[in-house]
Design a protein around this nucleic acid. Structure first.
Lengths: 183, 183
DNA sequence: CTTGAGTGAGACATCATCGTCTCATTCGGT
DNA sequence: ACCGAATGAGACGATGATGTCTCACTCAAG
């Protein structure tokens, strides 16, 4: 009887990742509950989005934990991060564009923490000589987000196979498009 | 007296690139005209967006022409393309997310032509041995769009300097984050 | 069986935006 | 200077989404 809040959020995330403009009614139906019940659990659309944001932050945090960003060399850690991120890429892509839309609203502090961890990873790679230093760690972080989003959209639209996307993002981000001479 | 259609579109593009959810009233005021006049020139919001899309396609087409994608080696052509694209990156980022939102609507044929030209460029680079072949040309095209969008947003939010963004996109896309051994 | 909490369906008012219309005003060409 | 086309401001109704409310129903615990 009691609605599973986590299940509702998961369904909402899945729907909004596909169609970011879905109405509260559509979200409720996608979760298999009534619109009134949805409002009982989330004060409004804003509250739902914020809860979804919190979920995304937690999922990305867990992905980072699982990727063990501090272990091994930075490129390997980055590969693990991208692989761990793949299941939540759709939600992340939605949240990124959503954050882009609300220019006025203050950004959830959780994102800053996540940014900082990725930023630290890139900087470590630079200090250890694995990453080039002529590209700023801030830009590499942005690029990672951008490629994750591009990958999620490309998969959603069928332009890239789901099985390839993790490898494609990691290879492009690490090695670039240019054919390397070293191997 | 007569409203400059091109000027209105430019103003709308600049505003929507910053705030994609702007209302018709805000767009009109941003263009320095009344809402009624805006409706006289564009049948509705959809028509305005479509006109904006057409403008973006034309601008990107001109950027491609100016970049002379067929001349020189593919990496150099890609650099020229990114450089030529920079002034319209904001509008392109808006149109990409907008296309993402309208899943049902048919995609403007113009995008396919542009996609094909970029696709051809990447494929040429692969055939000439400049680009790696283990990453599909389709993915490289998506990645280029993603990085252009990420760059535009990063600049807009002040996380990356505008002067650096062209170089950052080109270097990352071509060479990747990994420090190269070959030079 | 009884009871109460939780739910689904729907009604309802509110709100923002859209698209259309009118009317007075202004600008440019003649 | 005159006249017509174009504009700005605002009113108006329509529309869609939102948030709140009521009411009947269901389910599970006691």
């Amino acid at each position: 009887m009691a609605v599973d809040r986590s299940h509702v959020l998961t369904a909402a995330a899945a729907l909004l990742a596909r169609r970011p403009t879905s109405s509260m009614d559509e979200i409720a139906r996608a979760a298999g509950i009534g619109r009134a019940t949805l409002h009982r659990h989330f004060a409004g659309r804003d509250a739902l989005i914020r809860a979804l944001e919190q979920l995304g932050i937690e999922q990305l945090t867990r992905a980072m934990d699982a990727a063990r960003l501090g272990e091994g060399d930075a490129p390997a850690a980055l590969r693990r991060l991208i692989a761990e991120t793949e299941p939540v890429a759709g939600v992340l892509a939605f949240l990124f564009t959503e954050n882009q839309l609300f220019e006025g609203a203050e950004i959830n502090e959780g994102w800053n923490r996540l940014d900082a961890r990725i930023h630290t990873l890139f900087r470590r790679g630079q200090e250890e000589g694995d990453f080039r230093i002529d590209l700023g760690a801030a830009w590499l972080t942005e690029a990672l987000y951008g490629l994750i989003g591009a990958g999620a959209w490309a998969v959603h639209d069928g332009r890239v196979a789901r099985n390839d996307v993790t490898h494609s993002i990691a290879e492009l981000l690490l090695g670039g498009a240019r054919r390397s001479m070293e191997k």
